[in-house]
Structures are given as structure tokens and as C-alpha cells.
Nucleic acid binder design. Sequence first.
DNA 1: AAACAGTTCAACCGCCCCGGG
DNA 2: GCCCGGGGCGGTTGAACTGTT
Length: 235
Amino acid sequence: MVVEVKQGGGEKKGQAKKRGLWKPEEDLVLRNYVEAHGEGNWATVSAKSGLKRGGKSCRLRWKNYLRPNIKRGEMSEQEQDLIVRMHKLVGNRLGNGRWSLIAGRLPGRTDNEVKNYWNTHMNKALGRGGSSKKRSNAKKLPRSNGPMAINPAVVSIGEQSNQAVMAAAADATNAWIEAAQNMNYYIDTPVPAAANDMAFVSDMEPFMAYFDPFLFSQTLEFGGEAPFAINQAFI
DNA sequence: AAACAGTTCAACCGCCCCGGG
DNA sequence: GCCCGGGGCGGTTGAACTGTT
């Protein structure tokens, strides 16, 4: 059945869009198209490939299912551990990029998969419900809760490192502050200029590594030496 | 075997951000 | 600076699946 679908965001109106589960033949068309033309310009994919799907639907299908190196199946203990730690770190109030940030640390996993995993397995494990049948009728909260108090230590890091860390500092939330306070770590020496030079470090990671012992240990594994000084305290 | 309840996860929606004109 | 469109995000939905009675 083909129905008219109102798409979110910048989706163009007018063309009837197919919806629902993707068929193997649709996957094949999309995969062939992306392999031939590359990712991007999703809005034109349906017109050029012949798929009667919206651009967003194509993008999501590719990103979450068809992309090479997608890892499926059960989460390993290490993956679960990392999800828990990072979720604790970024909390529920960080704003954009939370799930993708976590997924970025899990090779082959997508933000959607991490999100689903958290909502089903982890919330349940933590006794917070999580069944999709127990849905709240509460009004959707705004994505951002506005400017939050900034941890002075965080600000000092931002001032002395790079723009990306500054941006992270600007986004600091109470969740971050609580996480930092719970971690028994404090910063002794500000980040050296080279912190963002490390190839594996994304914009947020140097910032996060300050507060998460696990990520910090990973930093040591990858980089061989700490990108910044860190002291363990109050233990 | 059938009916119902509970769970999972792919897909969609609405909103926001950002870059280009 | 403003507008528009594409891309990306988190939240939510509902079909499909699994377990229980």
C-alpha cells in the first residue's frame, strides 16, 4: 500500500511515499545506488534510484542497516559496560548527540541500536521500566533545557584548550557536573594544546576522558600516554 | 491449539542545527 | 541578517515476535 506521508524536517511534499518495513529488493536498490553514487543528497535518492521512499527513510535504512561493517546481534559485556558508563557520564540532559556519541565508541553499532538497547535492556535492568507498552502520556519535553550551570573546572579546561572543548564546556549540564563529582577525579594540569591532535579523539572525547576512568584507560591504550595530567583523589 | 500479554527493534515523526544562497 | 532545505537527533510508535496461560 502506498500512502501519502508527511515527513519531518526538510522533506519535500507532494510525492507519494511508501512506508513500513523495507523489502530485500528495496535494500538492494538502495545499496547499489549508494555504492555507485556515495552517501549524501538523500533527498534525491528516491528520484534517482526509483525507490518510492523519502530521503530520510533511505538515509536511516542505510545508516542503521545497510552500511558496511554494521554489527548486529547481542551486545558484548564490554559494550554493555561502555554504554552504562557513558550513559552515566552524559546523562539525559546533554542534548544533541548523546546516543551517537555513545555509538561512536562502539564500532559497528548505530545510535538507534544503542538507544533501543538502552530503552529495552538497560532501563529494565535498572528498574526504571522500559517496556514500550508502558508508555508515558507525558507531554514531550523540549530537547534542550537551556543553559546550565558550568563547572568552574570545566570552564578552565575550555579556556586553555581548543574550540571544540570550549563548545563542550558551553554545553555542560548538571548531569556532567554530577558525573564529574561522582568520578573521584580532578584535573591537576590543564589540557596541552596537542590534546585534539590525537587521531582517534573526536571533539568531545578529550573532554570526557577527564571524568571517566574507563575512557581514560582507553586513552592510555590508544595513545600510549595521557594527553593531559589527571590526578586521582578523594578515594 | 488458541488467545492473550509482554518484549523487541525497525521505522517514523517532529524538532533543531547548519550551511548555502 | 534572513530564509530555505538537507541532514541529524531523540522520542515514539506499532508490527512482528516470543512467552505464558
